[in-house]
Design a protein around this nucleic acid. Structure first.
Length: 650
RNA sequence: GCUGACGUAGCUCAACUGGUAGAGCAGCUGAUUUGUAAUCAGCAGGCUAAGGGUUCGAGUCCCUUCGUCAGCUCCA
């Protein structure tokens, strides 16, 4: 039987009758000419289809326009094909890999004998505009496996992909003008729809993300429906660059990395160090109120300890090589600088007999550890080799796990959410390939974390295989200024190390029991957290964190003594203030204070000197000034610091 | 670690196809004594990342090493 007519349901619930064989484009046209023009693709039963595909009878169908985020993915995917079309015309021997849409754009991977140069990118982009102008329709075909292989005989990467497809999978190919690609789709109607794009950069990328396989050349680009969107995006990249912690860190004189000393090793300059000091104080106060105890442990240890803990060889590639023992010691004694603190804290736990009454025992140490991170992964303060962890190890009875995780999630929220006003994501990271302990213990540990997250009603993603080698973890993730994702806080449950170190406590039953461990950090590391804060606040830190809180500005030399007196009053009240004594105009000093993001400038002219007041200028607030008595100014600032306010109280 | 690009004064950047390294800001000195985002003048500042090579001559060309940046891989 062949129906002459089909019926589809639109999102508003209304029904539309169309002749059999009608396409998405026909549907859009039937609804209205405006929609026909704006239509990019259709959504059928949750799946996005080409406009040119025939509609199925009796389904729910929505027409996607350029306002729809899913349509943007389609556009970017098509942009990737336009890119490949251009590359194949300029480099006929380029083999094609994958070319998906990504956040804000797209890429396409090519196997070429020589990498693309910046000049190549310009030529490719010009050629892309020609492809757009030619307005080739994207034509979809479904083919069988043999046919697919025949079409891609010269593209080994595509052949490999075809072999990976399951027996029942539909194999589709898309053609736009001279270019044919193995592709699931969907695509925009024709290349002419791809107008507002820009190639950004080329870089190597391993085939299928596997570093043992060949390296392809990946070209990244961005694409938008309108010129305005494209320009706004490029401006956004520009803005992001300005809040990059590496740029601000230099401008604000917070930290440096010195080639003489080595990559990934941070010098905290006085201003950065003041921030670290404030962060330490804060977290130490928080945890000391919650039953933690501070410890300090050595930076190097006999290698034996890391053998026992299982770090060697599981973690060896991230550790610096061993050092020989000093003169007079046995030759085979080697020392290692520590990449983690857990074995150290375990030794403190094991240094005496523990009772079930003692647990939980919470040992905390803001400690420097060193990890031999691969050189290409280093990134300012966000990925370093010398790390300052706000580390702690909790030793628990099994029945205390859930409460402890609840307490930790509360601390995370207090510190990250409430104090810094951050929004963050939670990941549940499960067992990796290289791991300690049996699957049964991993099952138990993963279930415990998952249970705690669920009971708290928290939303989280699962990071399959992302756990530490000794246990699964709950990770806090955030994005930096240029959109890259980083891990901050972490809560890691560990049944393996207590086993390896034979840890025990005496139970109520007077028998030995094995404690459970939690490894946790709230900031993660002070390097990464501080780098992140620089970007988050764009250098304009809340008062309590600002290295320089007040800059006192005398207008002329005659007010120098008065300005110094104000500075002394502030300093005596525990506030960090300096006087700008330079022989410069007020305008100059204000400009300098603003560029250095000082929260408050206190102007002391003759009027203020006579009246015992200051004319306060707030960071970023322009000419608006508030005249206060010095006493009132001090009191407000103290309150702002005490409450760690995120916005000024003056 | 891999692929590519890059490395010039404290910072941001110049120096055409190889021909004796230059500017702005910052710094210092002096003049000016300033009322809410840059007062004026002068001075000083560089083995052009390091090492080697080609050349009459190298910031510029070649090699090695170190570092930075983007991406991949890996991770707090």
């Amino acid at each position: 039987m062949t129906a002459r007519e089909i019926r589809v349901t639109l999102p508003d619930g209304s029904e539309k009758r169309l002749p059999a064989g009608a396409t998405g484009a026909d549907l859009a046209r039937a609804i209205g000419p405006g929609l026909a023009k704006a239509a990019v693709a259709i959504r059928v039963d949750g799946q996005v289809w080409d406009l040119a595909r025939a509609l199925p009878d009796g389904m729910k169908v929505a027409v996607l326009t350029d306002k729809d985020p899913q349509a943007l993915d389609v556009l970017r995917h098509s942009s990737a094909h336009v890119l490949a079309t251009a590359v194949r015309q300029l480099f006929p021997h380029a083999k094609i890999g994958f070319g998906p849409p990504i956040e804000d754009g797209f890429y396409y991977d090519f196997a070429v004998p020589t990498p693309f140069t910046p000049e190549d990118l310009e030529r490719i982009e010009a050629k892309m505009h020609e492809v757009v102008k030619a307005d080739y329709p994207f034509v979809r075909e479904e083919v069988n496996r043999e046919e697919a292989k025949r079409r891609f005989t010269d593209d080994p990467l595509k052949l490999e992909r075809i072999d990976d497809l399951g027996p029942n999978e539909v194999i589709s190919v898309y053609t736009d003008g001279p270019f044919v690609d193995l592709c699931r789709g969907p695509h925009v109607a024709s290349t002419g729809r791809v107008k507002h794009f820009k190639l950004l950069h080329a870089a190597g990328a391993y085939w299928r993300g596997d570093e043992r396989r060949q390296m392809l050349q990946r070209i990244y680009g961005t694409a938008w429906f309108t010129k305005e969107d494209l320009e706004a995006y490029l401006r956004r990249l520009e803005e992001a660059r300005k809040r990059d912690h590496r740029v601000l860190g230099k401008q604000l004189d917070l930290f440096s990395i010195q080639e003489d000393v080595g990559p990934g090793l941070i010098f905290w300059h006085p201003k950065g160090a003041m921030m670290q000091f404030q962060l330490r104080r804060f977290i130490e106060d928080v945890i000391l109120e919650r039953g933690y105890q501070l410890v300090y442990t050595p930076h190097v240890t006999r290698e034996q300890l890391f053998l026992k803990s299982g770090h060697l060889p599981l973690y060896a590639e991230n550790q610096f090589p061993p050092m020989a023992a000093g003169e007079g010691e046995a030759e085979d004694v080697r020392y290692r600088v520590k990449p983690m603190n857990c074995p150290m804290h375990i030794l403190i736990y094991a240094s005496q007999q523990r009772s079930y009454r003692d647990l939980p025992i919470r040992l905390a140490e803001i400690a420097n550890v060193y990890r031999n991170e691969r050189s290409g992964t280093l990134h300012g303060m966000l990925r370093v080799r010398g790390l300052t962890m706000d580390d702690a190890h909790l030793f628990l009875r099994p029945d205390q796990i859930e409460d402890e995780i609840f307490q930790l999630l509360d601390i995370v929220e207090l510190v990250l959410g409430k104090t810094f006003g951050l929004s963050y994501r939670l990941d549940l990271a499960t067992r990796p390939a290289k791991k300690l302990g049996s699957d049964a213990t991993w099952d138990q540990a993963e279930r415990a974390l998952e249970e705690a997250l669920k009971r708290r009603g928290l939303t989280y993603r699962t990071d399959q295989g992302g756990g530490a080698f000794y246990g699964p973890k709950i990770d806090v993730k955030f994005n930096d200024a240029i959109g890259r994702e980083w891990q901050g806080a972490t809560i890691q449950l560990d049944f393996a190390l207590p086993e390896r170190f034979q840890l025990e406590y005496a139970g109520e039953d007077n028998k030995p029991h094995r404690p459970v461990m939690i490894h946790r950090a709230i900031y993660g590391t002070l390097e990464r957290f501080c780098g992140f804060l620089i970007e988050h606040f764009a250098g304009a830190f809340p008062l309590w964190l600002s290295p320089e809180q007040v800059r006192v500005l005398p207008i002329a030399d005659t007010q120098l003594a008065a300005a110094r007196a104000v500075q002394r009053r502030l300093a005596a009240a525990g506030l960090r203030a300096v006087v700008d004594e330079r022989n410069e105009t007020l305008n100059y000093k204000i400009r300098d204070g603003e560029t250095h993001k000082v929260p408050y400038m206190a102007v002391v002219g003759q009027r203020e000197a006579d009246a015992g007041t200051v004319a306060v200028r707030l960071r970023g607030e322009g000419k608006k000034q508030v005249v206060l008595s010095v006493d009132a100014f001090v009191a407000k600032l103290q309150e702002e610091v005490r409450t760690r306010a995120l916005t000024p109280l003056v």
